[in-house]
Design a protein around this nucleic acid. Structure first.
Length: 766
DNA sequence: AATTAGGCATTTTTT
DNA sequence: ATGCCTAATT
């Protein structure tokens, strides 16, 4: 049976699978069966070479990729696949630091600060250094710090390397920044990597422990790793050298996040004996699409040419379509979707719209809503970045760790409780003078007199009272931490803090409440753990998930996604929107004047093109909205880098009668009817003249109920979901035109809230 | 002293 | 169109 899966591989794939000892670089072109090679290689290690699954670690870029790998392995290997460590670098490092971080003075219940928190820390550090946040942008200082950390350059290292005035400023902020993090017992994303690296350097016995644990190491998307990640991989494999990295330099699209393409070169110089295997047969795309992509990418000068080829059919030409503005661009896409799903048998789940910037999703979302096309937006305004979610999270962090000044600052007056800026400033000053966290300062200020503190405090009695109430509130909540379940803790925090009322009175209450419910149901997954443990794990999980992780495949939605997030995915039909100068390539890369930035844009487009299996559409619009106004938009230079003979430009008459057509709904309605996509309520124009604008939400799925075919679910029913598997109904809740069912699934999926009309749950009696 | 309302600049991509 | 800062308001 070993032979069976080996015989399904082409010769280089097979060689990659069978090369298990020593350093190995797999250069995997798009669609070349990379995932297949990785999973087969692991299966080979376990089944043929008798390696224990415990000894294998696979590091991927996203949680989704990790999960997918585990799922595939489970299919070929059974339950033992769960013993393989498959995770992202960040969560892998987080695990190590929680286990052994105390050796370098890190509390094991550290919190992970996200982007917003980091900005807050930078601002605070700047103020403490007497640097005006208006003179230097906190964002750019943060990116300097982050870039430094990604290269394993700590404060001292940076200080000695700094060479100009700006870097002097950064170096001062960097130092304070680290102090604030340490005081808050928090780490940022880059720390997860850098601290793991220094832990290994600092204590070789710990490193050895992990080297012995992970005898076989694999790194996916190697072209997108940064220096820190590469060095950790090197450390871990130092003793056995069983390091297999998989990547494609042409798909390197994260240099702005300090990914360093030089890692691929370094790998070959660091391991001169490394075997290099290229996977060049593409199993995904038509000849036309592949030819177009190859021709495009060959315009990059700094690259090594590959010889990609495919046995697939010629396929249809690449369609280039132009709309008058972004609305029409979206309309064209929707109509084309209607056309091909009717004549080509494609369903919505086969189709994706990809764009450069999240803002572009708007026009498509509106078009989908108008024509009743169910869709999912990946990313956008990120779920865990929404205000209500960040607020409740800040409360939770604070009760777990009262040293967390950043979280305290966020919620000390949310909802408003009479603690204004002046009070906060004074409190900050006291905390700073006494060198204590803000929360402790509140305690001092409210319980001691000025003489007792030998520091004078300028606060009125009203402020003192408000602070005292706040302190009691947080203390009260902290006391619940150990006794109660995570879900009830969160509910209690919502109630006691007044956040619940606050949110309910918001003008977007409905959606915010829905978001909080989703938040609570994701917390329910941690119900086996106790008190602090549960909260720590929950907080960690929400810091490390990306939105891409929530992408449902299998479901029949149109997928709207950024080109960056689309990496690693594939769809039979792909629309790349916004093929214009300034969008793709992005303005910034043009203005920077750095040719390598333009090359990265080209790679990004290359990634987009190569996601398509059968049909590729390149969309552009003649005018594009820009900061309120709108202006003409020139076609992307990338369009001219695709040979004309591969391109077809459909005549406008076929697709769109008139740009200003007032009632396109009817036409499209007819075209789309068979998609089970009846428009949501008679909502039609409401998005344009309602005073309550529809909020942007992460995954907007049109709630369309198929007529009276809903089975009735009740608590305790056993059900089956096509992708989540078996589960038990915990609760049902009727909404306006649907029923929301809360189901606890087995096998790690946890508790989900689903809409009855969409989930297609099957009842499994007994 | 806190809140709120209106004015100003602002948006790349994300673990 | 959204968020942050300043100025008017209670």
């Amino acid at each position: 049976m070993t032979d069976e899966y080996l015989s399904q591989l082409n010769p280089p794939q097979r060689e990659a699978v069978e090369t298990i000892e020593g350093p190995l670089l797999i250069v995997a072109g798009p669609g070349s069966g990379k995932t297949r090679v990785i999973t087969n290689r692991i299966a080979y290690l376990i089944q043929t070479c008798g390696v224990s699954p415990y000894k294998i670690a696979a590091l991927t870029f996203t949680n989704k990729a990790a999960k997918e790998m585990q799922e595939r392995l489970r299919q070929s290997l059974g339950q033992s696949a769960l013993r393989i460590s498959a995770s992202t670098f960040h969560s892998f490092c987080s695990m190590i630091l929680r286990q052994s971080g105390d050796k370098i003075g890190l509390a094991n219940d550290f919190v992970i600060f996200d982007d917003d928190d980091q900005i807050a820390v930078v601002k605070r550090a700047m103020i403490e250094c007497d640097i005006d946040p208006k003179r230097f942008s906190p964002r750019s200082i943060l990116s300097a710090i982050s870039s430094s950390k990604s290269q394993l350059l700590d404060v001292d290292g940076y200080r000695t390397k700094k060479s100009n005035y700006y870097e002097e400023i950064v170096s001062r902020v960097y130092e304070k920044y680290e102090e604030v993090l340490a005081q808050s017992s928090a780490v940022d994303f880059d720390d997860l990597l850098m601290k793991t690296y220094s832990l290994f350097e600092f204590d070789k016995s710990i490193l050895q422990k992990y080297q012995d644990k992970y005898l076989y190491l694999m790194v996916d998307e190697f072209q997108d790793t940064n220096i820190a990640q590469y060095n950790i991989a090197k450390q871990l494999s130092e003793s056995h050298k069983n390091l297999c990295v998989v990547g494609d330099p042409d798909q390197s699209i994260y240099s702005w996040r300090n990914a360093d393409i030089r890692n691929i070169l370094s790998f070959q110089t660091d391991y001169p004996k490394a075997k290099v295997i290229s996977l060049e047969e593409n199993y995904r795309s038509t000849k036309t699409i592949l030819k177009g992509a190859k021709s495009l990418i060959s315009a990059n000068t700094s690259r090594v040419d590959k010889d990609l080829w495919t046995n697939n059919t010629e396929g249809t030409p690449i369609a280039v379509m132009e709309g008058y503005n972004e609305e029409e661009e979206a309309q064209l896409v929707i109509r084309e979707i209607g056309r091909i799903s009717e004549s080509g048998g494609y369903s919505l789940g086969d189709i994706s719209v990809m764009y450069r910037v999240n803002a572009q999703s708007r026009a498509f979302e509106m078009a989908c809503q108008r024509y009743g096309v169910p869709y999912q937006v990946v990313g956008g305004v990120k779920f865990y970045q929404r205000k209500e979610i960040k607020d409740i999270t800040a409360y939770l962090r604070l009760i777990l760790n009262t040293h967390d000044d950043i979280s305290l600052n966020r919620i000390i007056n949310v909802p408003t409780r009479g603690i204004g800026q002046r009070t906060i400033d004074e409190l900050t000053r006291v905390a700073h003078d006494m060198e204590i966290p803000l929360f402790e300062a509140i305690d001092k200020v409210t319980s001691l007199s000025n003489q007792e503190m030998d520091i004078s405090v300028q606060l009125g009695s009203r402020a003192i009272r408000a602070l005292s109430d706040f302190k009691n509130l947080i203390t009260l909540m902290s006391n619940e931490l150990d006794g109660s379940k995570l879900v009830s803790l969160i509910e209690s925090v919502l109630a006691k803090s007044g956040l619940k009322k606050h949110v309910q009175s918001d003008d977007q209450a409905e959606d915010r409440i829905e978001n909080i419910q989703e938040y609570i149901s994701s917390a329910a997954q941690f119900s086996e753990l106790q008190g602090r443990q549960a909260l720590t794990s929950f907080l960690e999980s929400i810091s490390l998930v990306a939105d891409i992780d929530s992408l449902e495949d299998g479901a029949d939605f149109l997928t709207l996604i950024t080109l960056h997030q689309a990496k690693g995915l594939e769809f039979p039909v792909v629309f790349v929107a916004g093929m214009e100068e300034g969008i793709l390539p992005h303005m910034r890369s043009i203005e920077s004047g750095d040719p390598s930035e333009l090359e990265e844009e080209r790679r990004l487009f290359y990634v987009g093109m190569t996601r398509a299996r059968e049909k590729l559409y390149l969309m552009r619009s003649f005018r594009r909205g820009f900061r309120g106004g709108s202006g003409p938009s020139a076609p992307s230079r990338f369009l001219s880098e695709i040979p004309d003979e591969l391109i077809m430009i459909p005549s406008r008459e076929q697709t769109s009668p008139k740009p200003q057509e007032k009632s396109p709904k009817k036409n499209a309605g007819n075209q789309l009817r068979h998609m089970h996509a009846t428009p949501k309520k008679p909502q039609k124009e409401s998005f344009s003249n309602s005073k309550k604008p529809k909020p942007r939400i992460r995954r907007v799925v049109n709630k369309i109920s198929p007529p009276n075919s809903d089975p009735v679910y009740k608590t305790g029913d056993k059900v089956k979901h096509h992708s989540f598997g078996d589960g038990i109904v915990l609760n049902t809740e009727s909404t306006a035109n649907d029923v929301q069912v809360t189901v606890a699934f087995k096998e790690g999926t946890g508790v989900k809230k689903l809409l009855a009309s969409f989930a297609k749950l099957e009842k499994t009696d007994q």
